[in-house]
Amino acid sequence: MIHVHHTLLLLAALLLSSASHAHKRWLLPTDFALSDAETVTVDFTASNNIFYVDKGMPLEIVTVTGPQGEDIPLANATQGDRRSSFDIPVDVPGTYRIAAGGPPMYFVSYQLPGQAELQHARGSLQQLKAGVPAAATEVKFAESHSLIESYITLGAQTTPARPEDSSGLQMRISQSHPNALYSDEEAQFRFELDGEPAAGLTVTVQPDGSRYRDDPLELGLVTDDDGTVTIEWPGPGRYLLEAGLEQTAGDGDIARRYYSYFLTVEVLAP
């Protein structure tokens, strides 16, 4: 269990470095669209370069949902140092959803008398509240929501059911299906925050291969009033879509809320 502990700490460290400066986290399947039943292997890692594996991510937060809404267990799951990976036997026609989310994570920061450095801790909100020393000042709690997704389709695309929990930052499949993207067609994805359209959200579109060029060639696009972003693909290839929000919360004990969302897609030549 030391291993799990280690990776959760890593995840916390990646998140703690603030939503806007965290590593990119991504799920990368070997195949996005299939014409015959096949096992698909998925990498799960955090990195700065796209798609260059760097830090293996914890597999406990990964769920795979089949076309009929069934939970699919991860096969051959391996949590490595640089990458985690697992297999999905894709044998039912339709669209599979891979998601790494999990419950929100909580962080606290505070100042202790006589200590120059700000103190940090993470855990459940209850644990954190109980653990803050009585002498602490400037106690600030933060909540972090994170969702990392990818989709795989065997045969014709289907639209996966909306997750029951609409909290956090989520992408809704509406105009474009993430497994039917072509470089000669623009794509539209709709974003929602806690079930409401996420208008004015910046969505960064990052093409594969950033390690091998000077300019990462990221596109920064903004969602419209309906929370929809329209993407004109620079060309065929694999892309990471990233969106993040940081909110100062007025209510209760939480000073800040962070939301981050990542989606890996494949865009084909016409």
């Binding site: 669209a33 299939l34 014409s35 015959d36 096949e38 084909l268 030549a269 016409p270």
Partner: peptide, 10 residues
């Protein structure tokens, strides 16, 4: 083989 049908991309 069905596996390669998708390679007829259009």
């Amino acid at each position: 083989q069905e596996k390669w049908h998708r390679d007829l991309r259009s």
